[in-house]
Nucleic acid binder design. Structure first.
Lengths: 121, 121
DNA sequence: GGGGTATATTGACGAACGTCGATATACTGG
DNA sequence: CCAGTATATCGACGTTCGTCAATATACCCC
């Protein structure tokens, strides 16, 4: 009895609307997508990727440094993040280190991002 | 004389490669793009946008709260960020506030993001 | 091997971010 | 006007991020 009254109370209650509005993706999936966006959410990383994408083959770190307005340790830091994200790879040649973009990973990232965005717009 | 020697020294010097590798976009443009990615770089914001996109019309805050695993002030915080970014708009109706996604802004954001990504992959 | 160069790493620092309890504000029904 | 509810704001706190000077590491050439 009490139970029925409670249910009725809820139905007639002061809900603004019923929560049919559920997210289509789990929070875990949203977290994964957020990581994708996070990797691109810094101007220096975007510029580094831009230079690397535009230079088929390899670019040495000194040229990457010249392309962005931060000091050498900071460039190294962002290159590390990009490397750990799998978006670039590096190769040591003598005294220098050359970076190149990983097209496959970049394409996969682009596809995942586009899929998220398709749901919004 | 000294000057010529210096130039020659640089030419023959120990550069790994000439910096033909310049970014195609300015740092200011990269900063603007990074802001776009930043707005999407959080799981709660992605989930909120997801729910809003999937509900043509309006969704009240209480339902948005139910859709994400954070407390009410945090939901309010992220809704404010989305509102300030122009991605959603709100309307107060009596006791409740309804949010809706701004399709035009979402589409514009998507297009800008896609343009950046096209350069990479 | 010693001096020079390229890149990475470390450590420190301030700034920005994310979260939440507490509170304020605005509305509603009685 | 009062008690209750919905949402926003405030204030504090811990965490992560971005940057750089200093240093380490690895390489090169003489």
């Amino acid at each position: 009895m009490t139970r029925v009254l409670e249910i009725v109370d809820r139905r007639l209650g002061d809900r603004c609307c019923d929560p049919t509005a559920r997210p289509s993706r789990s929070h875990a999936e949203a977290e994964a997508a957020a990581i994708d966006f996070d990797q691109l959410a810094h101007p220096v990383r975007l510029q580094l990727l831009d230079v690397l994408a535009r230079n088929e083959g390899r670019v040495c770190v000194c040229d990457l440094e010249a392309a962005v307005p931060v000091k050498q340790p900071t460039v190294s830091h962002h290159l590390r993040l990009l490397r750990e994200a799998g978006l670039v790879e590096s190769e040591k040649v003598g005294q220098w280190v050359y970076y190149r973009i990983r097209r496959d990973a970049a394409r996969a990232l682009r596809d995942r991002v586009q899929q998220v965005l398709r749901a919004f717009a």
